[in-house]
Design a protein around this nucleic acid. Structure first.
Lengths: 307, 307
DNA sequence: TAGATTGTTAATCGATTAACAATC
DNA sequence: TAGATTGTTAATCGATTAACAATC
């Protein structure tokens, strides 16, 4: 069993030397890429963090009247099942092999529509947490998002088991899991092309920040000299800046610069995703995804549905 | 047959007195609501307009080397088939009964995704026309819109027969037909809630204008005193203003005002469609359609697709 | 335990695609 | 006529829904 000791420890808290998963080198441990213990983006396991904060060896020593992580962690943490007094490991050991493989493999992509709705679920979870509510049900999430509860549950099943039958989803864990699944913990330096359009879009900047996309460069050959607290640089310098800052996201806000040459240049320099605010249709390529955020098409859609 | 004379004329050019469709009162005529002759929005038939501009009695008197309307009008104009020297009426007479009924019935709604893509097709058609190109094929449209040619054709089949096998779509007619099908000829007075967000959105205003949505009121309790050339009024006055101006479209640009009460008030006053630029999810109702234009969800979608 | 709610399955619905006869 | 392209059909694909056993 696991005891508190520093040596042969993967996570810094548990001594794993006597754990047969570890001995057989089948336990990926907190520090590895195991999706169920540490996070894809490298941030630590919530159980690991909580236990460290409380200064205890593990959940079995916890004296909190209610668990700060909700009540579902038993079936999520493979180590948890091994603590004194706790039951079963939910077939986790059997799935561990697969899990370990998955850590090095690409995480399967989440359906695009699901990802879109996740932004709403995350918002609601934050809102509930702020109001001191601990859990939220698929029905509540569905009402807020304007979709059926069944679809919410299907969407959230992308996160792995993270709800509790009879209770719903713990709002803290839900936020954590959504952020993890969409790798929102990972910082994404972002460049903005078209300075004039940046000024009047506080909500766009806010949206970028909520996804950890931090503006590191603004580019334009005309218009204001500074924008969003950054000095506006010449468009010709964008490619170089992308290389220097490691930017992976670009926002295209000026139609007259939205051409395939610019796109190719940015892609070569390391940009992997482009948010296109202009009505120009841009072609994606193997290692560049484009998201059209064209308001004109939405107005057409709106009018077509108008009775 | 039809001859040039003023009396018993439906369209002001043709004397319909001897036409059996007219006599049987089955011919809806240019001036009526017939979809195939006049436009849903009341603008006149393109053939009617062209003929009047050229000062001739009808297409049978036309001496232009190539038709300015493309070559497909034969199968679209039920009168056309009756002109001297012109062939067949393509079973139009048989469909006329049905057509006449349809003019009073509701036009069937166009699929929302199709409507969205229409904005792109329209753009391309305008672009080709400006460059002096007369026709565009489904392949060309598809390349521009980022979809397959088959989907373009399926989309455009919503307009009725409007392409020519072997040649493609006449860009002028394509524009006309898209505008007609989406009733873009109809002016839609529009109110904007949230003055501060209006300033920095030249492209949103432009998009609204391209759909004939003219701003008639800007409302906010704080921020600038004028916006988009209009005096900013208090939010409380929005409902009354909607009634006075007959506004049917509203743009919601401030999250803190995007509540169900406001929505209900606007709807009661006559608003039928809302473009919601805020991340708040608004519930549609029987006579109010909502279009979410939330940038946050698009960023989530983008990141989920990023590799 | 009874009531509530999850995660998943099979069924349904809608949107896209490939193919092709009809047409210019 | 030969080549190009439309409009439509049937097939495929993907997304949503309803239902329900499993679970708390």
């Amino acid at each position: 069993m696991l005891t508190k000791r520093a040596s042969r420890s993967l996570c810094g808290i548990y001594d794993c030397s006597s754990c047969d998963l570890f001995v057989a080198e089948r336990c990926p441990g907190c520090a590895s890429g195991n999706l169920h213990i540490s996070r894809e983006d490298g941030s630590p396991c919530v159980v690991y963090e909580c236990v460290r904060k409380l200064g205890i060896a593990g959940c079995h020593e916890c004296t909190e009247p209610t668990c700060r992580l909700g009540t579902v962690r038993v079936s999520r943490c493979p180590l948890r099942g091994r603590f004194g007094g706790e039951k079963k490991d939910d077939g986790f050991r059997a799935r561990l092999e697969e899990t370990k493989g998955a850590a090095t493999r690409q995480t399967p992509a989440i359906p695009a529509r699901t990802a879109q709705r996740m932004s709403c679920y995350l918002r609601v979870a934050q809102d509930y947490a702020r109001r001191g509510v601990a859990t939220v049900s698929s029905h509540q999430l569905g009402r807020a998002a304007g979709v059926r509860a069944a679809l919410v549950r299907r969407d959230l099943s992308e996160l792995g088991h993270c709800g509790t039958p009879g209770r719903g989803y713990a709002v803290d864990m839900l936020q954590e899991e959504i952020r993890r699944r969409l790798s929102l913990g990972q910082a994404r330096p972002t460049v903005w092309l078209g300075a004039a359009e940046l000024a009047g879009r506080p909500e766009t900047r806010q949206a970028l920040e909520s996804a950890n996309c931090r503006l590191v460069g603004v580019f334009d050959d005309e218009g204001p000299k500074t924008a969003a607290g950054l000095r506006v640089q010449r468009l010709a310098r964008a490619e170089e800046a992308v290389r220097k800052t490691g930017a992976t996201v670009a926002v295209l806000a000026r139609e007259d610069v939205a051409g395939p040459e610019l796109l190719q240049g940015l892609s070569r320099a390391g940009v992997k995703a482009v948010l296109n605010l202009t009505p120009a249709r841009l072609a994606a390529s193997a290692n560049l995804v484009i998201e059209q955020a064209d308001i004109t098409s939405l107005i057409f859609r709106l009018l077509s549905r108008m009775r």
